[in-house]
Write a protein that binds this DNA or RNA. Structure first.
Lengths: 303, 303
DNA sequence: TTATATCCATAGAGTTTCTCTATCGCTGCC
DNA sequence: GGCAGCGATAGAGAAACTCTATGGATATAA
């Protein structure tokens, strides 16, 4: 009473070729196997599908009416399964990811480009959102991977790896800070600073770093977006401190930037996923790709 | 490597119910059976479909993406097979048939009505065509059954049963033939006759019957359609001879009809199909229905 | 904290199903 | 009339399936 996909496929092939013997060779089975399969199928349906005459095999009307719809459905099924196998073999797939805007605009486009060079079937759904949204998107499983700042330690979140995103100071070409041998918190505190808004991860790291150095510089101005901060620097309002990985650093040809020589001026970076959840194959591959390249992307890694 | 419909159905049910145990009871199999089925499916695809946590079973993204399309395709397949089983069990189907116009308009509507009373799922595709077209439609398999006149004996045509369609003479109420005790060829030949055109089966039978009686009445007029002949009778041009089964006989209230008491004035009726071809179940059933009722439909049957 | 209950995974046995080779029966062709 | 080709059938061996029994892990309850 149970019907097998192989029986249906056999039916379609016998119908197309009009011969059990030919169909058997096309399907790489013996001819009796096909005879039995078709008989079983006919018994299961209670319908005669072929009229067998010694010199020809002809579809009955029932067979003729069943064939087109069945063939379409079988093709649907097979393309579905073949798609699934493509996904499994990392040939195709969508990497769903959330990242802080600085990463999304900074390092990720190049990384994605490099990854797609090796995996042309990969496509990306990248959401650039603030840190709390990254977590929310991971929790709701709208994305599989998250690239975020800060140390993430929740029972339902798993960290795949961490790295450190060091910060740089951005200043006008003619600014005296360019003459300093090393950029430290103390040096930075001497000058008016354009700071990122409260609530951004950049500001949190910056405040913490100054705090650890016993300093509390007042912002000359504040900005929500890095590009705004860059504009203020160009306008001479002050210097600004941004992650080295941020592309905005290079947006103004008239500005220079230098790495800050203070370990506190670095934000931890974490690639995270939901705990106890299997990553799609291509997402897992991309996570490994990111981890393998993390030394080139961020300043240093700390396991 | 081979994927089974049962595995896919199991996947859908486990996904819907979110539990192996519940799905097992819904599918009437043991829980380990489901575990094995899902594992085999995952191995075949190379994809993890569920994340199993001791307290919950959750679809992976791959599973979630596969589910809707798979479910749709499975439903397609199952409705396809269930349709086929409906056809097999004579619950549903189309009876494709060709019949001479006299039968198509005469006896068949009532027969079909009676048959559909017992088999509400039956629909009919009835073609009313001349005898040579009936044969052609059977040969080309455009129809499965043919109801035609004459003795059909070809190697590729099989006769399911034969019957005799006796003929009647149609005359105006006041016509002297109404006073005759028995209507014979000799009686008929005394009066002007409106005859069906050469080439019609009615004319062939009529000519043969007169011929056998040693008579050769000249037509007072000829008509292609029975209704035309009826009209001529009403106009007083002559009498006409039509199959008793033809509805046209009763079209004119002012006309009377009587069975002709001469075995030669009867055309053989044959229900035919293509030889070596299986009839669709409902068509076979209708053929049996026709055969069972043939005594009520035609004057007499001759095996 | 410990005991318990629940849930899925695994193991092994028995059964069913499948596919193969060998062979038969039938029909058309030379 | 014998031969060739095709599908059906039989029987054996192999593979797959499903079952019961049991294990391992975790959340709930005492």
């Amino acid at each position: 009473m149970d019907i097998n996909v192989r029986q249906l496929r056999s039916f379609v092939v016998v119908a197309k070729l009009g011969s059990f013997t030919q169909a058997a060779s096309a399907l790489h089975v013996s001819q009796p196997t096909l005879s039995v399969q078709i008989r079983r199928l006919e018994e299961s349906l209670g319908l005669r599908l072929f009229d067998r005459n010694p010199r020809s095999v002809a579809l009955t009307r029932m067979g003729r009416e069943l064939l087109p719809a069945l063939e379409r459905t079988l093709q649907d099924l097979e393309s579905l399964l073949s798609d699934a196998r493509d996904v499994a073999s990392e040939r195709r797939g969508v990497v769903r990811m959330a990242a802080l805007p600085s990463f999304a605009a900074g390092i990720l486009p190049d990384v994605i480009g490099g990854f797609r060079g090796q995996n042309p079937g990969a496509s990306f759904a990248l959401k650039d959102v603030i840190a709390s949204r990254v977590l929310a998107l991971i929790r709701s499983e709208e994305v599989d991977l998250g690239l975020t700042g800060g140390d993430v330690s929740f029972p339902d979140i798993e960290t795949l790896f961490t790295a450190r995103d060091e910060m740089s100071v951005v200043y006008p070409e003619s600014h005296p800070i360019g003459a300093q041998r090393r950029i430290t918190a103390r040096v930075l505190a001497k000058y008016p600073l354009v700071m990122m808004d409260q609530g951004t991860s950049v500001r949190a790291v910056t405040d913490l770093a100054f705090n650890r150095a016993g300093l509390l510089p007042a912002p000359a101005s504040e900005a929500t977006y890095m590009m705004t901060a860059i504009g203020m620097v160009r306008a001479g309002i002050g210097l600004t401190i941004l992650p080295t990985s941020a592309r905005e650093i290079f947006a103004e040809p008239s500005l220079r930037s230098r790495r800050i020589s203070d370990n506190n001026f670095a934000r931890p970076v974490a690639l995270i996923k939901k705990a106890h959840r299997t990553l799609p194959p291509l997402s897992r591959l991309f996570a490994e790709f990111l981890q393998a390249n993390r030394r080139g992307l961020f300043a240093a890694s700390r396991p």
